[in-house]
Amino acid sequence: MSHLKLIALDEQDLSVVSAHVQDAVMKVGDLDWRPVERRFIAAANRFVWENRQGFLRRNNERRRAALHFEAVRSVSSTGIARDRPDEVLSLLAIGFTPGVEAPAGTLELVFSGGGAIRLEVDYIEARLADLGAAWDTASRPQHKT
């Protein structure tokens, strides 16, 4: 499978990126806010949800990926211990709430355990890119329905 590269420029695109990073794991120390560049970056190990089950297919894989957001005015978080860089976070979803003046609004990265990161943005511009080869993982993330 080739490396995934996605860009989100609206809410519909963002839902596609969100689906591909669901259950991505990352360390707190792999989150990087660059205020001068107005960019927020997260390095993550994403679960390869686009794999299909079948003959000679590895079904449970992860890939190292970079997720970054442009036009970020400010960043805030809750439920994340920034003084513990080795703490592992599991990303559940990325959402967007429009602001008073479109296309500005708030992007929210929601993590299991109640943690969240809020990005105040001028507009939606998110990019997801795989950085390397996949590796097998023993388990597939499970969610209660």
Rank of each mutant, 00 (worst) to 15 (best):
V72E: 03
V100A: 12
A43E: 04
L9H: 05
R73N: 10
A71V: 11
H68G: 01
A102H: 01
V75H: 00
A116Q: 05
A134Y: 03
A133D: 12
L89W: 04
H68T: 02
G95T: 13
A133W: 04
V16N: 01
S77A: 15
A129G: 10
G115Y: 13
M1A: 13
R46H: 03
M26D: 03
D122Q: 02
V36K: 11
G54N: 05
V16Q: 01
F47P: 05
E37Q: 15
T145H: 04
E87P: 04
G113Q: 01
R34T: 06
L14Q: 03
R62T: 11
G29T: 07
T137L: 00
R82L: 13
S112K: 06
A129N: 11
A43F: 12
V75T: 07
A71R: 05
A116P: 04
K27G: 10
K27D: 01
Q12V: 14
R58M: 10
A8P: 10
L56C: 11
R62S: 12
L119D: 01
E11D: 07
D32V: 14
G54Y: 10
R39H: 09
F96P: 13
V16C: 00
V28G: 13
D13G: 11
R62E: 12
H68L: 08
A19Y: 00
S77G: 09
P35E: 00
L92I: 13
E125S: 04
D32A: 14
L107R: 05
K27P: 02
R63M: 13
A138T: 11
R52W: 02
E70P: 05
L128E: 07
F47H: 04
A133I: 15
A93F: 04
V28T: 14
G105D: 04
L92D: 06
H68Q: 11
T145G: 12
E101V: 14
V16D: 00
V75K: 03
R127H: 05
R63L: 13
S77K: 14
K5S: 07
I41M: 08
E108H: 05
G113E: 00
E101H: 08
T145L: 15
V48A: 13
H68V: 08
W33G: 07
L14Y: 01
T97W: 02
P35I: 11
V17E: 00
